[in-house]
Design a protein around this nucleic acid. Structure first.
Lengths: 133, 133
DNA sequence: ATTTGACCTGGAGTGCACTCCAGGTCGTAC
DNA sequence: GTACGACCTGGAGTGCACTCCAGGTCAAAT
């Protein structure tokens, strides 16, 4: 199957402008063109875009995604380096999850503080309502 | 205790420029000044900066942090709204963690693919080494 | 035949969160 | 008394990842 840029945008969740932008900066190999010169994205293109958006979600900078994309063009010889990039990204994602988990705990603590204030606010003498932050 | 801007930067993990920037955009109330007009950060200032950096880590935009900071200045009357902001942020952090977890699974899958290629690459006839992405 | 709508190109503009700079003021060390 | 280092100010510059724009082409619908 092949898809117009609008359809590819819909399916990838990226904007039309972003699709052209990714092509310009060589994140995406130029897709095929139809008779009128319009882009015709393949399923492979869509799969690659799907993976790219996952990498983006993990916070990988475009620079690194470009490196990965470029390695991919160099075939199996680059598989080791590609794996290394993914392993490094895996590490950074796990770290980020732990960091966010810590923030979640702090938020819960703060929210519980506010909840206590709400429960007590009617029975507290003026001047004592202060909350730490 | 009070701290020079350099010391406050060291303790908060923010740069000196960022501390002045946060003050300019009203994320941080102007700290006290010493006799020579230099900033003298209090422990309260440092605690607030610590919380701000947590919010930043969660991906809260500066706009929202400013709103929270501004509410804080309005005392206990704003506690409900502040709590609501934190609850909303808690929700978005939990969502983000789930999303990252999904990415982690995909990375693991890809990494395992590459590992298999590595294990097989010596015993594979040429032309069959292709890997999906 | 012309209007419409989707698409094309190269290039400029945007929003965010800093980060850097020039030029100046202090207080302490030599 | 001057050199130094840390600090001050207002404002300009940076990097990232898009996002928008003007002006143009093309095929199908009216």
């Amino acid at each position: 199957m092949s898809y117009s840029i609008a359809e590819a945008a819909r399916r990838s969740g990226l904007s039309i402008d972003t699709l052209r932008y990714y092509e310009r900066i060589k994140l995406l190999d130029p897709p095929a063109r139809d008779a009128a010169g319009r882009r015709a994205y393949s399923d492979d293109d869509l799969n690659w875009l799907g993976f790219l958006t996952k990498l983006r979600t993990t916070g990988m900078p475009i620079k690194s995604m470009r490196e990965y994309a470029s390695l991919r063009r160099h075939g199996v010889a680059s598989a080791g380096r590609r794996k290394a990039l993914l392993v490094e990204q895996r590490r950074s994602v796990a770290e980020r999850i732990a960091e966010l988990q810590g923030c979640l705990d702090i938020l819960d603590y703060k929210i519980e503080n506010y909840a206590q204030v709400e429960r007590n606010v009617l029975g507290v003498e003026p001047g004592m309502e202060e909350i730490s932050a």
